[in-house]
Design a protein around this nucleic acid. Structure first.
Length: 157
DNA sequence: ATTCTAACA
DNA sequence: TGTTAGAA
């Protein structure tokens, strides 16, 4: 079974997943003309081009942003309002992502069950969520920080 | 083939 | 906003 620690690991780097304007346009049903216009209005941005190339390069994050703006415009919002709502949505998602990734400290075995290290409960204790193999409720257990840390690390790699 | 800017319908 | 033109 895969083990995880705080270290993020991945098969590919999303920062290398980029699109040119034609691709992004067909992916989002937003015309290239609109994409250039939105960029000029600073509602979206394209990646800085280090080389001398002229063609815009868009990140995956921009793909999400464009999709959100498009969605809100289809809902009837003006471009400016749609962009504002899309921005707010992304900020909420960033917060949630931070909340989750900071809360999930790693996995371990406790009482022969999968245990999810949810991080500090207070100054001395760490909260562990015990996930049963089959059906059944998830239970929680508080362990001394040192013990939780050690067992979480012991299962890693 | 694709994207660029600028301009006009 | 769509759709051109001509250049890169």
């Amino acid at each position: 079974m895969a083990q995880f620690t705080n270290e993020a690991r991945h098969f590919f780097d999303v920062r290398r997943l980029v699109f040119r304007i034609g691709e992004l346009a067909s992916m989002t049903d937003v015309s290239a003309r609109q994409l250039r216009y939105w960029e000029k209005k600073e509602l979206i941005s394209s990646q800085e081009r280090t080389d001398g190339q002229q063609a815009r390069v868009y990140t995956f994050k921009t793909f999400i942003q464009v999709s959100l703006i498009k969605y809100f415009m289809d809902e009837g919002f003006t471009l400016a309002a749609a962009a504002q709502k899309a921005d707010a949505r992304q900020n909420r998602m960033a917060y949630i992502h931070h909340f989750i990734s900071s809360g999930l400290q790693g996995f371990a075995k406790v009482d022969d069950q999968l245990a999810i290290n949810l991080g500090a409960f207070d100054a001395e204790q760490t909260l562990m969520a015990l996930v049963p193999d089959g059906d059944g409720p998830i239970t929680y257990k508080l362990l001394p920080n040192a013990e939780a840390q050690q067992m979480t690390r012991a299962e890693a790699e």
